[in-house]
């Protein structure tokens, strides 16, 4: 499917990737060609076929509902670009 420029800009925003206006046409062309290529799957008959969500033939294991790990906030925050008083710090969200 050929995407229009507005759709490309919308996808970029949904993906939280800033796409400068001059970069939209190039990305539009690349994404359109990839989507057109994958659309060959439309011709495959999948009536009555269950979607495959995992190759692991097992249900999710359960563990005891108890604390098994943690208690080291300094390690959790060690790589944060900005942290204050034991929290991640981000630009102001609420005025």
């Amino acid at each position: 499917m050929a995407l229009d420029q507005a759709t490309v800009a919308k996808i970029a925003h949904l993906a939280r990737i800033k796409l400068p206006e001059e970069a939209v046409p190039g990305m539009q062309q690349e994404l359109s060609s990839i989507l057109t290529w994958v659309e060959q799957l439309e011709t495959v008959d999948t009536d009555g076929v269950e979607p495959m969500t995992s190759v692991a033939h097992q249900g999710l294991r359960r563990r005891d509902d108890s604390v098994a790990d943690g208690g080291y906030p300094e390690r959790v925050l060690a790589n944060a670009p900005d942290s204050q008083a034991g929290f991640y710090a981000v630009p102001k969200v609420v005025e």
């Binding site: 925003h13 939280r16 990737i17 670009p81 630009p91 102001k92 969200v93």
Partner: peptide, 19 residues
């Protein structure tokens, strides 16, 4: 997203920082 690890490029607000 620039919050927990790695690169952070500032923006006017949180969403712009992500982008």
């Amino acid at each position: 997203d620039g919050v927990r690890y790695g690169l952070r490029v500032p923006g006017k607000n949180l969403v712009e920082m992500y982008e």
